[in-house]
Computed example of a mutant assay.
Amino acid sequence: MVKRKNLFNGEGDLEIIEALRTLRTNLSFLNEKEVGRKILFTSVIPNEGKSFLSSNYAASVASTGKKALLIDCDIRRPRAHESFGVKFKNGLESVILGKVSVEDVILKDVIPNLDILPSKHITDGVTELFSSDKIDEILDSLSPHYNTIVLDNPPIAVASDSVLLSKFVDGVVVVVGYDQVAKKELEFAREMLGNAHANIYGFVVNKVDKSGLSYGNYGYYNNYYSYYKEYYEDGTVRTSQEHRHKKMTKFEKLVHRFKKEYKKQITGDLKGRRK
Rank of each mutant, 00 (worst) to 15 (best):
D152T: 08
D152S: 05
N153T: 15
N153Y: 02
N153Q: 01
N153W: 00
P155H: 03
I156G: 03
I156S: 09
I156R: 03
I156W: 02
I156Y: 06
A157H: 02
A157K: 09
V158Y: 06
A159Y: 00
S160Q: 00
S160F: 00
D161T: 11
L165S: 06
L165H: 06
S166L: 10
K167D: 06
F168K: 13
V169Q: 10
V169C: 03
V169T: 09
V169A: 05
G171A: 11
V172P: 04
V172M: 02
V173P: 10
V173W: 09
V175A: 06
V176W: 04
V176L: 15
Y178D: 12
Y178Q: 10
Y178F: 08
D179L: 11
Q180W: 00
Q180E: 12
V181G: 07
K183H: 07
K183D: 10
K184T: 11
K184L: 08
E185C: 02
E185I: 07
L186R: 12
L186D: 01
E187M: 10
F188L: 13
F188P: 00
A189W: 08
A189G: 06
R190Y: 08
R190N: 13
R190L: 14
E191L: 14
E191I: 01
L193V: 04
L193F: 11
L193R: 06
N195R: 15
N195S: 10
H197V: 04
A198G: 11
A198D: 04
A198S: 15
N199P: 13
I200C: 12
I200E: 14
I200P: 05
G202A: 09
F203K: 09
V205R: 06
V205G: 08
V205L: 15
V205K: 10
N206K: 02
N206G: 05
N206E: 12
N206S: 09
K207D: 11
V208K: 01
V208G: 03
D209A: 14
S211L: 11
S211N: 14
S211R: 14
S211V: 10
S211P: 00
S211I: 02
S214I: 14
S214H: 07
S214L: 07
Y220W: 13
Y220A: 13
Y220H: 13
Y221F: 14
Y221K: 04
Y221A: 09
N222P: 00
N223M: 12
Y224S: 00
Y224A: 09
Y224E: 07
Y225G: 00
S226E: 04
Y228W: 10
Y228E: 06
K229T: 11
E230H: 11
Y232W: 14
Y232F: 15
Y232C: 13
D234Y: 08
G235S: 09
G235K: 08
G235T: 12
G235A: 05
G235F: 10
G235E: 10
T236A: 02
T236I: 04
